[in-house]
Design a protein around this nucleic acid. Structure first.
Ligand SMILES: Nc1ccn([C@H]2C[C@H](O)[C@@H](COP(=O)(O)OP(=O)(O)OP(=O)(O)O)O2)c(=O)n1
Ligand SMILES: [Mg+2]
Length: 446
DNA sequence: GCGGATCAC
DNA sequence: TATGGTGATCCGC
């Protein structure tokens, strides 16, 4: 009874929801030290919106999923010989360890605040000021803005709350692509097989270059970074290690087993590429926060290989990753995306109006595909409701799709399940046989 | 093949 | 007032 006299706040945000609302890129360099106050402001600003409700729904679903996994874990551990399982995973670890290859010098290079620093070249007055790139949602933020908690993926109006003097700069993709080409060319001098990962980073194997030029890795990377700065006025960070697992920022990881193990020991699991917000929570639920914790819970992970991926995590624990660097798949994948924005006074709730919009998108798609002579065998219709719930509906054909407007419209009309209150429509035509893409049209409603 | 979920940048 | 674009992969069905 006594407890009921002190009811909790009405629907307080759970820690997990507050964290979810903060967005995916909360581990970026240059962010403020105290994120809890920042996260509170973000949650406050989000409250009451449809977006917030949707995040809350997803958070609840994830909590249920976690509870299910915990139950599975408890069931799986019943009546099995844990020490036997641990022995078996130890054997796997020994196997992995025996194949550890420290012979290759891998460097990961990543441009600093890429879009922001390119904008700085065009507008030097921004120097030293907090600014973000992008309208609506920020693609990135200058380091001066990050101090306030402003970061990638954050909507502009919330960023302004965190930093009222924040300047918003429009996005100019062609500029970034130009600079990207320049930078990549420099990287390729050091490894012609470089793997470009996105437009601002790359993985290089500089073993051969160091040998030929009689350079040690540190000197080699310093030289490369100096070249980038000289030729582009942009700065770049690098991590040098025996494989492609990127350390944060600029870093040299000594090439011996002990150094690597101690580096991994306290590294938060979230820093590993492939472990995002969701997997971070799942792993946290079974007691894993750092790469070192993987070993402690190896029996559970072994029993729940399906859910967590034992091999993936064991390799992470040891700090063993691929040290083969190859350029990405060569397949041409031209994307000419056309975009149409419509603004109406409210979301569309009338079938005929929606069909009219769909027809506009189909017409745009016909136009683009005709112009470029492309087609495919799958049509995908994707739409977002004003609740932020997303649906995709697809249909594949044995023959090439007619990209005539009316044919596309007929297919999409069929795929659209008469949901109302739409925010966004997208149509894709996918060319799958060569695992190739595509064409996308976006139609913004409401 | 389909649809949802997750992740990276 | 208001929460992105693009591309990829994986899993369960
Ligand atoms: N959610 C995101 C993340 C990134 N980007 C774009 C803008 C970035 O400038 C570029 C490179 O991404 P990075 O993750 O490397 O971020 P930055 O280069 O901006 O900053 P950092 O100095 O942390 O590398 O990709 C984006 O559009 N949306
Ligand atoms: Mg970068």
């Amino acid at each position: 009874m006594g407890q009921e006299l002190n009811p909790p706040n009405p629907s307080p945000d759970t820690a997990s929801l507050v964290k979810r609302l903060a967005g995916p890129s909360t581990t970026k360099a240059g962010l403020a030290k105290d994120q809890s106050e920042i996260n509170r402001i973000i949650a406050e600003a989000s409250k009451g919106s449809k977006f917030y409700d949707n995040e809350k729904r997803k958070d609840k679903e994830l909590t249920e999923r976690i509870n299910k996994i915990l139950k599975q874990r408890d069931d799986a551990r019943q009546g099995v010989d844990i020490s036997q399982i641990e022995k078996s995973t130890d054997h796997t670890l020994d196997q992995l360890e025996s194949h550890r290859d420290l012979s290759q010098v891998i460097v990961h290079v990543d441009m600093d605040a890429f879009y922001a620093n390119v904008e700085l070249l065009h507008n030097p007055e921004l120097k030293g000021k907090p600014f973000g790139v992008g309208a609506g949602v920020l693609s990135t933020a200058s380091y001066d803005a990050r101090k306030y908690g402003v970061r990638s993926g954050m909507p502009g109006f919330i960023a302004k709350k965190l930093c009222p003097e924040l300047i918003l700069v429009n996005i100019n993709f062609t500029r970034y692509q130009e600079m990207s080409d320049k930078v990549m060319d420099i990287f390729r001098r050091y490894d012609p097989n470089m793997l470009a990962a996105g437009c601002d980073e790359g993985y290089l194997n500089i073993t051969a270059y160091c040998e030929e030029h009689n350079l040690d890795p540190q000197a080699c990377v310093q030289e490369m970074r100096a070249f980038v700065h000289k030729e582009t006025n942009l700065t770049v960070s690098a991590g040098i290690a025996p494989n492609k697992n990127k350390p944060n920022g600029q870093f040299y990881l000594p090439f011996d087993r002990e150094s690597i193990k101690s580096f991994m020991q306290d590294l938060p699991i979230r820093r590993i590429p492939g472990v995002g917000r969701v997997n971070e929570r799942l792993l946290d639920a079974i007691g894993i926060k750092t790469c070192g914790d993987i070993y402690t819970h190896r029996a559970t992970l072994s029993l729940m290989d399906k859910q967590f991926g034992l091999q993936f995590l064991l390799r992470i624990h040891l700090g063993i990753a691929s040290n083969v660097v190859e350029p990405g798949k060569r397949e041409e994948r031209k994307i000419a995306s056309a975009k149409v924005h419509f603004r109406t006074f409210s979301t569309l709730s009338d079938r005929q109006q929606i069909l009219n919009k769909l027809e506009e998108v189909a017409a745009e798609l016909e136009d683009d595909t005709e112009r470029n002579g492309w087609t495919g065998k799958t049509v995908t219709l994707k739409y977002k409701l004003n609740t932020y719930q997303v649906y995709t509906r697809a249909k594949s054909f044995d023959r090439w799709i007619s990209t005539k407007k009316d044919d596309l419209l007929a297919v999409c009309h069929h795929l659209w399940q008469y949901h109302l209150l739409l925010l966004v429509f997208l149509i894709f035509i996918i060319y799958r046989s060569a695992r190739n893409f595509c064409q996308a049209i976006l139609c913004q409603l409401g």
